[in-house]
């Protein structure tokens, strides 16, 4: 795969929490408009890696990073404005984390921050952004009658789709998802998975998952992490049915993790 077409190009990425190294020499490319799944046992560094792509790790004092991550050719570890980066590279978390405000205000939060709705008709414009984002996240029909009620009243699955809508509303380019369905029931999980397929037409998606069936179902490419290393990366079908590394094979066949 050629580097110049890649959305993200990661090279020799090392990361330490204080003294302990959590990522070791990670190197691979993420292609645009694909879903890349990152799998591996707990504590293998996949979430830490994901959080480096929009530099959420900056919020943790003890983290030190080395290597390079290029986003559309731009070095985001050194030469980049984090605030701008996070608008472009949105993130959905493991536990739904709606703000304690109305459904509408949750979705409008980002557009208001970044002044996405401007001009004389900015209220109308904001309404449109909110509606479009909710429709896109397949939540609109369920909440259209209670847009101004607290978001904390929604079910877990609805809350997670709200969080997706909230990210879509800032018009990102990439979606990072950190085990987005691990706290949800199977029906909500299915809804979000079918949503992903739809979203990939417009966005590049990187999803961390515990659930290997999920990785197999939704992703185009898969990377397998183990104790801070990227053991293997390739097309999902290859990883699942033709793994090159014996450790990948053991993990896929359920021998550890």
């Amino acid at each position: 795969m050629a580097t110049d077409t890649a959305k993200f190009s990661i090279k020799d990425l090392d990361l330490w929490y204080g003294e302990s190294q959590a990522l070791k020499k990670i190197t691979f490319d993420i292609q645009p408009n694909t879903i890349t799944a990152l799998i591996g046992p707990s504590g293998c560094g996949k979430s830490t890696f994901l959080r480096q792509l929009n530099r959420m790790n900056d919020l943790i004092d003890s983290v030190k990073v080395q290597g390079s991550v290029l986003y559309d050719g731009l070095d985001i570890l050194n030469d980049c404005d984090v605030i701008e980066l996070r608008q472009k590279v949105g993130m959905v978390f493991q536990k739904p984390n709606p703000f304690p405000m109305s459904i509408y205000d949750n979705v409008a939060y980002g557009p208001r921050l970044h002044g996405l709705a401007t001009g004389k008709k900015r209220h109308r414009a904001l309404d449109e952004i909110v509606e479009r984002s909710l429709v896109h996240a397949a939540l609109f029909d369920e909440v259209k009658d209670r847009m101004h009620k607290s978001a904390l009243g929604l079910s877990g699955g609805q809350q997670q789709r709200l969080c997706i809508a909230r990210v879509l509303a800032v018009e990102p380019d990439v979606l990072l998802m950190d085990e987005p369905t691990s706290a949800l029931d199977p029906i909500s999980t299915a809804k979000i998975e079918s949503l992903l397929d739809d979203l990939k037409k417009q966005y590049t998606i990187v999803i961390v998952t515990h659930n290997m069936q999920q990785a197999g179902r939704v992703s185009d490419a898969t990377g397998f992490f183990l104790t801070g290393e990227m053991v293997e990366f390739g097309k999902t079908d290859d990883i699942f049915f033709n793994p090159k590394d014996s450790r990948t094979e053991s993990y896929i066949s359920g021998r550890f993790g």
């Binding site: 929009n54 959420m56 919020l59 605030i83 701008e84 980066l85 996070r86 608008q87 949105g90 993130m91 978390f93 536990k95 984390n97 709606p98 703000f99 304690p100 939060y109 980002g110 921050l113 970044h114 969080c163 909230r166 990210v167 800032v170």
Partner: peptide, 20 residues
């Protein structure tokens, strides 16, 4: 998680503090 949700949307620290 709430702070992270806000930062991940590209909010500055001031915005995260005052709005969330």
């Amino acid at each position: 998680e709430l702070r992270e949700g806000s930062y991940a949307l590209g909010a500055t620290r001031r915005q995260t503090i005052s709005k969330v």
